[in-house]
């Protein structure tokens, strides 16, 4: 599954992996914004593509697999690219396709080089609301557990379908019933989690450990990274 592979990548070691999550977030945002505000032509994307490629190599991530994973945006982009093309703007369509792909690749590089907990903590110290971060954290934590359950259910449903031909209506209600059971399990699990939290003294307030230190190297990385993004933007805007 997508997130399992990305999770493994994010726990590798490299210069990029070692940088503070806030620094990486900043650089990624700078790159995304620089690309998004550049002129709508496929050529625009070239320097950005090079930058992301450099990042992938520096993070020692598998380039080809990364390129494949980022392709999840392509169906959507192709649809709209085609729409533009039909509307008589093939160049704009191509730009849409290439730029959205490079953007997805940039985000993938960010999450493939930053473990989820560090990323969330970085977002929190940049001002994301506490409760939201907690929820995203719990969501990610139990995504593995609950989607496994859903997979088992789907398997069971496939097995049953092989034996009996059911009407659409019955199949529809069976799916609703399956979701209700998945819900019930999630609900009971949430109660269990709360019980475990309460047993260790949780009384409604969350306290966190100190975030890791933002080193000088992180500052340099953030500064140089954003400056390069701006330069790339200037380059393509005035070429």
């Amino acid at each position: 599954m997508h997130h399992v592979v990305v999770e493994q990548w994010s726990r590798r070691h490299s210069f990029v992996h070692q940088r503070d999550a806030r620094a990486k977030l900043l650089v990624a945002l700078a790159l995304l914004a620089a690309l998004a505000t550049s002129p709508a032509s496929p050529v625009t994307a070239v320097p950005f593509a090079l930058l992301v490629a450099v990042g992938i190599v520096a993070a020692r991530l598998p380039l080809v697999s990364m390129l494949k994973k980022a392709a999840v945006v392509l169906p959507f982009s192709m649809l709209f690219g085609a729409v533009e093309w039909v509307a008589g703007q093939p160049l704009a369509g191509a730009a849409l396709l290439v730029k959205s792909y490079i953007s997805a690749l940039t985000v993938l590089l960010l999450v493939a080089s930053t473990p989820q907990p560090a990323l969330l903590r970085g977002m929190e110290s940049l001002g994301a609301p506490r409760l939201l971060v907690l929820m995203a954290q719990t969501l990610y934590r139990y995504l593995f557990v609950i989607s496994e359950q859903a997979q088992h259910m789907r398997l069971a449903a496939v097995c049953r379908q092989g034996s009996a031909h059911r009407s659409q209506r019955r199949a529809f209600h069976a799916a609703a019933g399956a979701l209700a059971i998945l819900f019930a399990r999630s609900y009971v699990r949430a109660e269990g989690i709360h019980r475990a939290m309460a047993a260790r003294g949780f009384a409604g307030e969350f306290h966190s450990l100190r975030p890791p230190r933002f080193t000088r190297m992180d500052a340099v990385f953030a500064g140089v990274g954003s400056a390069v993004a701006v330069l790339a933007h200037l380059l393509v805007s005035h070429a």
Partner: peptide
Amino acid sequence: IPLLGVLGAFVFAAQMVNF
């Protein structure tokens, strides 16, 4: 509080079940 996050995961997982 934990329910919110767990239900977020539930919604993700629910999208694997086809109607």
